[in-house]
Simulated assay, not measured.
Amino acid sequence: MIAIDIQKQLQTGTATLALNIQMQIAQGAMVSLLGSSGTGKTTLLRMLAGLSRPDGGHIIVNDQVWFDANTRMFKPPQARSVGMVFQDYALFPNLSVADNIAYALNKTDTRQLAHLLEITGLSALSQRLPGSLSGGQKQRVALARALARVMLTESRILLLDEPLSALDEGLRHQLQDELLSLHRQFGLTTILVSHDVGEVFKLAQQVYCLEAGRIARQGTPAEIFLHQQVQGKLNLQAQVLAIRQEEVVYVLSLLVGQEIVDIIASASEVTGLNVGDRITMSAKAFSPLIFKQPNG
């Protein structure tokens, strides 16, 4: 259990933000922090990691006091065994992939190093320098180094500050799957800063929304994003990518936003429909109805 009750004055441009956060995070949970820029999300992660000191309050992890303003207790970063992945990866440019990861390990623990390289798909890249890696490969190195910090500790806290935001969509989805698998495999307590609603739904069990330095709302992703009861039909705009016949029905491949989806349609629904046409899918009780839109 992570119990957080902290206060800190932050300077944001020309204004001052009074950060006042109270949270309780269950061990083994994955939670997400949401909020616009300047609401204190990254600062909260830095205070958990010991990279920034709160002005008041306390941080207690598994009944161990990491910070207490009243007793002036402050556990330094090297004693917290927290793994943190920054948005810019923060790798050592002059160290190889293996050495970047080994930096967070006991230098003689070659078995754990080999295991981390294997599970993050980096074994073949172990002697490469960060400058020669792709964005996705750098992300894996940063994640493996963070895991090296926490995998053998009791707290096993992983802090992720928008770690996937710079990646293309396909790679982002792949690393989301890998991150979720590693979270479960190592029994981590993970705190994720993300602005991607789909990512939050996929990964997080609990969401905390920060506004003006405080927790404005909290709940499951469904409670946060789907809190209003939807009435009537849901209309989605789509572009026709392909039309193919399979036995007595037709399958339409549609581009909805940045996602490609397939739906089943009848012969009458595809009459006059061509690849490239814009359509509206109207769904009620998950039954799609198709209305062709005029071109132009």
Rank of each mutant, 00 (worst) to 15 (best):
L182C: 07
Q139H: 02
Q239W: 06
A216D: 09
N20H: 12
E246H: 11
E162P: 05
V150D: 07
M47F: 06
N94G: 03
L113M: 05
V197L: 14
A144G: 08
E118P: 10
D277T: 05
H227K: 15
T220R: 08
Q87W: 10
Y250A: 11
A3R: 14
D262W: 03
Q206L: 05
H227Q: 12
H58A: 13
G136V: 06
N235M: 13
L289D: 08
I263E: 07
Y103R: 03
H58S: 08
K41W: 06
H195C: 02
D88C: 02
G276C: 00
A222F: 02
K41E: 02
R156K: 15
T280Q: 15
L129Y: 06
D277Y: 01
K138F: 00
Q176K: 10
D5C: 05
G187M: 15
W66I: 03
L91F: 00
A15T: 14
Q293H: 01
E247S: 15
L226N: 14
E169P: 00
D55H: 07
G13V: 10
R72I: 11
A148P: 04
V197W: 12
L171Y: 07
R278T: 03
A238L: 06
P54L: 12
F291S: 15
L164I: 09
Q231T: 14
A204V: 07
V270T: 04
N62T: 03
S132T: 14
V251I: 15
Q64V: 02
A104Q: 10
T71Y: 00
A18K: 04
S132W: 03
G131N: 05
V193A: 03
A146T: 10
E223T: 00
F67C: 03
V61I: 14
F201P: 02
N94C: 04
V197P: 11
I279G: 04
S81N: 09
L45I: 01
V261W: 01
R53A: 09
R278W: 10
L255P: 11
A124N: 01
A216R: 06
L182M: 13
T16P: 03
N20T: 06
V230S: 11
K75I: 04
Q228D: 14
S32I: 09
L175R: 12
V230D: 07
L210N: 01
V31A: 00
I263V: 13
T39G: 04
G28F: 04
A216W: 13
Q206T: 15
K284Y: 14
S194E: 00
L34Y: 10
A104I: 04
N70Q: 15
L91T: 09
K233Y: 05
I260C: 05
G170M: 09
A212I: 00
S96N: 09
G232W: 09
I157S: 10
Q22R: 07
E162V: 06
E246T: 15
A90Q: 12
E269H: 01
D196H: 10
R217F: 12
T280E: 13
L117E: 07
I4C: 00
T108V: 03
A283F: 11
V207F: 03
L125H: 02
L48R: 03
A146R: 10
V275P: 06
G83K: 07
V249S: 11
V207R: 00
Q112D: 13
D262T: 04
I21E: 01
S165E: 08
S52E: 15
K202G: 04
M23N: 06
L210M: 07
Q78S: 07
D88S: 12
